[in-house]
Design a protein around this nucleic acid. Structure first.
Lengths: 177, 177
DNA sequence: TATTGTTATACTCTATAACTATA
DNA sequence: TATAGTTATAGAGTATAACAATA
């Protein structure tokens, strides 16, 4: 009943190991339940909800790049999702007055209504699955810890930077193809 | 600059709200980095790694249903992933001596080697992104909290039960189609 | 009749590269 | 030349339902 694969790691202490597995497993389960709830209550995927929620939290409008950095990991993926949301009447896309290249994404009243529609169930799931076994002090500490972790991760190079390959004419020619 | 959508929820206090968002966002970022690391270091998806890790942690063998309950959310999805892993020589599938219906999934030496191969990088990512900004006491508390949450979630009805619709001949006939 | 697992199928989602347009 | 966004396309992954075999 030993676990030879995990007991000797180059870096992680056993305490970190079990913390890591508990965290990923718990969040995985939570995500799955949330996914079903959002689909059932408002016909939204998690990504779509995150886009709408980001817009709502930002006061109604963001550019595509701002959205991509916060929510999705490729620009084309966001374009796809934005297309679906626009077709559903939950957002609109229009030119930005500041920068002609940018697109301003705006949440519609229907979009806000949809968010409000799914929020109770969403909250209920979080309440039941996540917060139910936690004390107030647990919640406070967990929030403090995860905020610190999130800020730390956000300080790492952003996601939208990587896929954008900088290619000079020189390097392009050098590679031959 | 108000956030009318989120400020009045039926259930969640603001503290819970921010905890929830910090948790999901941080774990989302973590998952994305882990995904890239596993793909780069060992040509594995997260699900595939979880399957192999589950087998390794369980001592080498599990049935398909046990795996599905722990890792993936549909039986067919697991069959698909197991097919890939078997084709890659990382697991084998064979009959169970106890129950002729069951399939025993066994991790191969190559499978164990693959887990060991990706583990250092995996650990490095967790170290750098998750544990770096945390103190020992943070890790201990986080682990304690998330273990409690996970156990609580596991106590809820399992995933493999739901998709399996029980349909009696009667209810089938009654619905007409 | 219930459970284990597979298959066929259709669908969603994502990422890559090539492209247009503006800074 | 670099950045914002879209498009075409191809691939991975998932779930549903129907199926066969065993308990």
């Amino acid at each position: 009943m030993t676990k030879p694969v995990f007991d000797r790691g180059p870096g992680l202490a056993p305490e970190q190991m079990s913390t890591y597995f508990a965290l990923t497993e718990a969040v995985g389960l939570l995500q799955h339940h949330v996914e079903q709830q959002l689909r059932t209550d408002g016909d939204l995927s998690t990504v779509q909800f995150q886009i709408l929620a980001s817009l709502a939290a930002a006061g109604g409008r963001l550019t595509m790049t701002e959205l991509a950095d916060g929510v999705v990991y490729s620009r084309s993926g966001l374009t796809y999702q934005a297309g679906l949301l626009e077709k559903a009447g939950l957002i609109t896309r229009g030119p930005s007055p500041d920068d002609e290249r940018s697109i301003l994404v705006t949440i519609t009243d229907a979009g806000l209504a949809r968010v409000r529609q799914v929020l109770p169930g969403h909250v209920e799931v979080a309440e039941r699955l996540l917060f139910d076994p936690l004390s107030e002090s647990d919640v406070a500490r967990l929030g403090e810890i995860m905020t610190r972790v999130r800020d730390h991760m956000r300080a790492q190079p952003p996601r939208s930077a990587a896929p954008r390959k900088r290619r000079s004419a020189a390097s392009e020619a050098a590679k031959g193809d």
